[in-house]
């Protein structure tokens, strides 16, 4: 149990550090920067208490906000995906078949499950982020395509990270 807490603690700071130092400088054609830090929310253990899940998602969003002058934007988008994560897991995973420390990794859950999980949450995060940033419903279609393209970029980074570091986690 302690090992899980330490791993998640380190992952929290490492991902925020990578986001605010490295990834904020990566821009591909006028699109947007990828947001790898949401991987932290994806990889919290299944049995994380709901209040803790929301609190951690909110905090990691807020921390990224402070470093990018967008107070509340990332926090709101992260809260949305924390909620979607609960919905998605409650629909697709049998709750009682899990051990307390199981984590939704690519290697433990299989490619198809993890792909749709990551796709849904990443797209929701990006779309919400852009919507709150512009605050204009008429721009939705334009932002939809922008969010879709950036989602591809973020997903690529998420899968690279997963394959590099968690291949033998089983």
């Amino acid at each position: 149990m302690n090992k899980t807490i330490i791993y998640n603690f380190l992952r929290f700071f490492l991902l925020v550090l990578i986001q605010v130092v490295l990834l904020k400088n990566i821009i591909i054609y006028n699109l947007n920067i990828p947001f790898l830090y949401i991987l932290f929310i994806f990889l919290l253990p299944f049995k994380t208490p709901k209040w803790l899940l929301f609190l951690l998602s909110f905090l990691i969003g807020l921390l990224v906000d402070v470093f990018s002058n967008t107070l509340g934007l990332h926090a709101a988008a992260c809260t949305v995906i924390a909620f979607l994560r609960i919905l998605y897991i409650s629909v697709t995973v049998q709750n009682d078949s899990l051990e307390t420390e199981t984590t939704p990794h690519l290697s433990t859950m299989g490619f198809r499950w993890f792909f749709f999980y990551a796709l849904l949450l990443t797209f929701a995060h990006h779309f919400c982020l852009y919507m709150f940033e512009v605050f204009d419903i008429t721009a939705a279609f334009n932002l939809f395509s922008k969010a879709l393209l950036t989602t591809g970029f973020t997903l690529f980074l998420i899968f690279v990270t997963e394959l590099l570091f968690y291949k033998r986690a089983r």
Partner: peptide, 28 residues
């Protein structure tokens, strides 16, 4: 319920941050 609480809190932050006159140090 948790979602609503945290979401409203972040919306309040967004709206307050858009106010030019506001004095806050939660930025760079």
């Amino acid at each position: 319920f948790l979602f609503i609480i945290f979401f409203i809190f972040s919306l309040v932050l967004i709206i307050r941050n858009n106010d030019f006159q506001r004095v806050s140090t939660l930025n760079t």
